[in-house]
């Protein structure tokens, strides 16, 4: 019979093996393939002569860098907007909703439970010349001409993604606010701090880690997006995620695509590290 310690060691094996096979191995494989000199299609039987040529191909092509920059910028705008919009929602839930907080939280989460693709599609119905907003405005008589409501544009992609992520962004902020010791606010009030001073001096800094978590929870899935821009974007909204997908699809350039994916992975890792450190220093000082 195994003792507790031995049993726990055995219990650690299945998740270790599963993660090694389906998370670590694939990422190592992408890195190895991205170091191949020929762009692809990759024949795994070929000898492996590591070279950085694929990375140079990406880094020396201004169009690719532009897509990376635009995707990162779009993801940043979406993440910032979703976090800023979610912040008052979380604040309301944490400090104003009282006993009904759970109910309101559920109401906020229901839209998030609706299929991602469907919520994106909803915006295709909303925007555009023939979209619901235009027909609605015209049938009520507010406008005669259909307004050019931004479908198939970069703004449409950003707007749709902000819509998709707002409820999700509220969760970590709400969690951080829930951990704030209410006595700190009372102490501030006793010392004569008004509502705004209490907010800026106590609530805001203490909820900041939650806001940063929200930023990342939106930024990470958004920066690699390739589905939404294909559905509500147009030809000039091509994102870096689509570039990666095309390297693996149409172009069959697995090595170049691998390098593009590794660059994105490194970029996100660096940003997360920087964000975590920034929060640490702020909380520490």
């Amino acid at each position: 019979m195994l003792g507790r310690r031995a049993f726990l060691r055995v219990l650690a094996l299945p998740p270790y093996l599963w993660l090694a096979a389906l998370l670590v191995a694939p990422i190592v494989l992408v890195v190895l393939i991205s170091l191949r000199p020929e762009p692809g299609p990759v024949d795994f039987g070929d000898p492996w002569n590591p070279s950085l040529i694929q990375y140079w191909r990406i880094l020396e092509t201004p169009a690719y860098l532009r897509q990376l920059g635009i995707s990162a910028l779009m993801a940043l705008i979406v993440a910032l907007a979703a976090t800023v919009l979610a912040y008052p929602l979380a604040y309301f839930l944490a400090f104003r909703a009282g006993d009904r907080a759970s109910l309101y939280l559920v109401l906020l989460l229901v839209p998030f439970a609706v299929s991602f693709l469907l919520r994106v599609m909803a915006w295709r119905l909303m925007l555009g010349q023939e979209g619901a907003l235009n027909t609605l405005l015209q049938s009520v008589g507010l406008t005669d001409e259909p307004l050019d409501l931004l479908l198939y544009s970069r703004e449409a992609v950003v707007l749709t993604l902000i819509y998709v992520w707002v409820p999700f962004a509220a969760l970590p902020i709400y969690a951080a606010m829930g951990r704030i010791d209410r006595r700190q606010l009372e102490a501030a009030a006793d010392l004569g701090a008004g509502p705004w001073t209490r907010f800026v001096g106590v609530t805001l800094p203490l909820s900041l880690p939650g806001a940063v978590a929200a930023l990342f929870m939106v930024f990470i899935p958004t920066v690699g997006e390739y589905v939404t821009p294909r559905l509500v974007g147009g030809s000039e909204t091509y994102m870096y995620g689509q570039l990666i997908q095309d390297f693996f699809g149409r172009a069959a350039s697995w090595a170049t695509g691998g390098a593009a994916a590794v660059i994105m992975l490194v970029l996100t890792a660096v940003l997360i590290l920087a964000g975590t450190l920034a929060v640490r220093t702020r909380v520490a000082t």
Partner: peptide
Amino acid sequence: LLALAVLPLIVPFIVLGVSLFLLFSF
């Protein structure tokens, strides 16, 4: 173990998709 188990949260989906695609092809 814990670090690995939550790691997929910070890997963009497209990177996970691409790497698993390569693994299964390999």
